[in-house]
Structure formats: structure tokens, C-alpha cells
């Protein structure tokens, strides 16, 4: 079962931290379909966190189709996220490696590469609005 934690100084809303942790666990294969998530009450007591926050995170995961609640029983993992190890990712990885080599050759350092990457990832969503 997943163990949650909260990093208060991250600037990321606590409920989002929980969402990220579930996604991470799905990606790493720590959680798989049919697993039960800890009860809201348990998370609240253990992590010392507002139960509303846990509920909000679970609702968000539900909206994303990753979990589904069964009233009176608990919340269960009902979806999957592609794992990083999947074989079909290999061509993408190779392409990225080539691109990185090109970026370094162009004189970009790690941080500039990350900034460029982040900006590019975000911009399509900007256009969609």
C-alpha cells in the first residue's frame, strides 16, 4: 500500500502532492489495478493532513480515471499510467537523447535545457485555450 507524505515548502498544493505521489507509484509499478488506496481517515491521521485534502486528491484521481470509489469499501486503483520501462518508449528516448546532444552542442547548459523543455511543454496548452 502507498505511503503518502507532504512537503510543505514545495509551493505545490498538498492535494496535488498526493495526486503526484499516486501517479508516481503507478508509473513505478508500486500500485496496480485493483489495489486499494488507504482510507481517508488513515491518511489524515498518519500524515497529519486535512481529510478534505485527501478527498480532493482522490476526487482528482477519480476524474483522471485512475481510481474509482466503492462506497463503504474504499477507493481502488482502476486505471494505469504507462510505465517508463515500457519497450514502446525506447524510440522516443533515443530521439530525446539525440536532441539533448544537439542542445549541448549548441552551448545550452542543463538548466537552460530544462527551462526550454518546460516552456515547450507548456506552450501548446496555452494555444489550446
Amino acid at each position: 500500500m502507498i505511503e503518502f507524505h507532504i512537503e510543505p515548502r514545495s509551493g505545490v498544493a498538498p492535494y496535488l502532492q498526493l495526486v503526484h505521489q499516486v501517479r508516481q507509484a503507478l508509473r513505478l509499478g508500486l500500485l496496480s489495478e485493483g489495489d486499494r488506496l488507504p482510507k481517508v481517515k488513515e491518511v489524515a491521521a498518519k500524515v497529519a493532513i486535512n481529510p478534505n485534502t485527501v478527498l480532493k486528491a482522490y476526487r482528482q484521481l477519480e476524474n483522471e480515471g485512475l481510481v474509482s470509489p466503492r462506497p463503504g469499501v474504499g477507493t481502488f486503483v482502476s486505471g494505469t499510467l504507462g510505465t517508463l520501462a515500457a519497450a514502446e518508449h525506447e524510440p522516443l528516448r533515443r530521439e530525446l537523447a539525440r536532441w539533448l546532444a544537439a542542445a549541448r552542442a549548441a552551448g545550452l547548459d542543463e538548466e537552460s535545457i530544462e527551462a526550454l523543455f518546460r516552456q515547450t511543454v507548456r506552450s501548446p496548452t496555452e494555444e489550446e485555450r
Binding site: V40, K41, A44, A45, K46, V47, A48, I49, N50, P51
Partner: peptide, 9 residues
């Protein structure tokens, strides 16, 4: 805080 949140939950 754990005790408090447990009570709330």
C-alpha cells in the same frame, strides 16, 4: 496534529 486530523476525519 495527527490526533487532531484523526478526530476530524
Amino acid at each position: 496534529l495527527q490526533g487532531l486530523m484523526e478526530f476530524v476525519a
